[in-house]
Nucleic acid binder design. Structure first.
Lengths: 239, 239
DNA sequence: TCAAAAGTGTTGTTTGTACACCCATGC
DNA sequence: GCATGGGTGTACAAACAACACTTTTGA
C-alpha cells in the first residue's frame, strides 16, 4: 500500500470464517452453526466472527475455533489461511471483508453452541448446502485446498489423534479424496518418506476388536512430501 | 461471520499489495516503488493501494497493476491472491489489513511511476531488501508460492509472451528455481502433458541470431500439471 | 569451420501399480 | 475355523535422468 490519503480511506469490517473439518465414521464432516439473526436467520453458516482491534486474523480464527468447538486447547490444531473474500456485496448490511481459514481436527468432539452461535453441528460435507452469505463457495474452496494439499504435504496427520495407525491415516486420504488406495503401496510410500510419520516403539492398537493389532505412529517433523503422494487420476484431469 | 453487533464492529483500512514478477535477462525481477510519504519515506515498497468501496480486492489489485506498470491491457495477465496480512502493528499509522497478490508478466515493459508512486523500478529479486512495512516477508512468500506452483500448474506460461519457444519456457523454470534443467527431458515432459503448450504451425523464431531456429508454442488450455514437474531435490528437502 | 542453440535417440535406474500371500486377533 | 484388518513380497510397467548424437543457423 502507498499514499496516506485520509479521503481514500474507507472503513471496512473484517471478519474470519472457518471451514472446520474432521473425519468421522469414514466421512468428511464440517462444523456449521445456525444463524440467530438476520440476514440469513435460521440458515446454516460457517463459524466465524469479527477480528478485534488488537488481534490478527490468525488470532481471531484460533479464538473462534476454540469458542465454537469448545476445545480448551486449540494451540496444536492445524489452522491455515485459505484466501480472502471481498466482493462488495457479499454481506447485505455493509462492506465486510472476510479472511477464510481451514481447520483440521483429529476427531469430532461434540460441538456445543458457543458464544454467539445459536447452534453448532457437525454435518457431512455433502449435506452442507445453501449456507448463508458466500459460505457455499468458501466451503468448496476449502475442501479443494485440503484435498490438494494432502498430495504434497504431511497435512493428513492433522486429522489424526496424537498416535494413530497407518490404516487410520489411509482412511483420511480415502475419505477426503473419495477414492480407495492400495494398502501395501500406501504403507510403503508413507514409510519411505522420512519425517512423515515415526513409529511409536512397541505400541499397538486393536482396530475395533477385529484383525491384527496395528503399529502406532506419531506425526513426524516433515511438512512437505517429496515426492508427492498423488491421488489416482480420476480419468478426466489434465494429463 | 455471525452476530451483527455494532459495537463489535471496528473500522479497518483494507489495501492490496502486489508482488509483480518478470523474468528479464535470465534473472527474476520484481516491481518496486519508492515511497513518497512517511512512514518509510524514501524506502522501496511493493506497489499497492487502498481497496475502494465499490470494488473487490481482486479488482483493486488489477487496477493497481495497470496503474503501476503502465500497461493498458492487464486483463490477460496472471494475478493470484497470495494471502492476507493482518498483524495489528504492521502499519504504524492505523489498522491496515492487506490482501497480497502475486502477478506474473511476460516481459518487462519499462515501469513508469504511476499515480501515487514516486518512482517505479524493476529490481532483481535478490536486491529487493529492506522494503517498507512487512513487504520483505510478503515478497519472500510470493516467491516461494510461485516457485512451488511451477511444479504442479501451467503457471510458467504466464511469464512468456503469447508465442514462445520451449527454451524460453525452460528459462522461466531455471530462473525461478535457480537450477539447471536437462533440456531434452524438459522438452519431452512439457510436450507429453496435454494442454500445457500447443504448437504454432510452421512458425519459428531465431534465438538471438545464433543457433537453430526454435519452434513456437502457445499456452494451452490446461491449468494443472499431472503428473507434476518436480524441481530437482536440492539434497536437503524432505524425501 | 566453428560455436551455439534446437531437437532426437538410447539406456539404465527408479518409481508406481497391481496383485498374491502370510500374520495376528476376535468370534 | 473363518472373517477381518495388518503387514510383506514380487513382478511388470511407466516414468525419470543422464548423456551421446544430429540439425540448423550466424559469424
Amino acid at each position: 500500500m502507498d499514499g496516506y490519503d485520509k479521503y481514500a480511506f474507507e472503513p471496512f469490517a473484517v471478519t474470519v470464517d472457518l471451514a472446520v473439518f474432521t473425519v468421522r465414521e469414514g466421512a468428511l464432516h464440517v462444523l456449521l452453526v445456525e444463524r440467530g439473526q438476520e440476514p440469513y436467520a435460521g440458515q446454516w453458516a460457517l463459524p466465524g466472527g469479527f477480528v478485534r482491534p488488537d488481534e490478527s486474523a490468525e488470532s481471531a480464527a484460533r479464538r473462534e475455533l476454540g469458542e465454537e468447538t469448545g476445545l480448551t486447547d486449540v494451540s496444536g490444531l492445524h489452522l491455515e489461511q485459505l484466501r480472502t473474500y471481498s466482493e462488495p456485496d457479499r454481506d447485505p448490511r455493509m462492506r465486510v471483508v472476510s479472511v477464510a481459514f481451514a481447520a483440521l481436527l483429529p476427531d469430532a468432539p461434540e460441538a456445543h453452541g458457543g458464544s454467539d452461535a445459536a447452534r453448532a453441528r457437525w454435518t457431512p460435507y455433502g449435506d452442507a448446502r445453501a449456507l448463508a452469505f458466500d459460505h457455499d463457495r468458501i466451503l468448496a474452496d476449502a475442501r479443494d485446498r485440503i484435498g490438494a494439499k494432502l498430495e504434497y504435504t504431511c497435512l493428513a496427520t492433522a486429522f489424526c489423534p496424537p498416535e494413530f495407525t497407518l490404516g487410520e491415516l489411509q482412511q483420511v486420504y480415502e475419505t477426503v479424496w473419495g477414492t480407495a488406495l492400495d494398502r501395501p503401496n500406501f504403507r510403503r510410500k508413507v514409510l519411505a518418506t522420512p519425517g512423515f510419520v515415526e513409529a511409536v516403539p512397541g505400541a499397538a492398537r486393536l482396530t475395533g476388536g477385529r484383525g491384527k493389532p496395528a503399529a502406532l505412529y506419531r506425526a513426524g517433523t516433515a511438512t512437505t512430501l517429496h515426492p508427492p503422494l498423488l491421488r489416482p487420476t480420476p480419468e478426466g484431469r489434465h494429463a
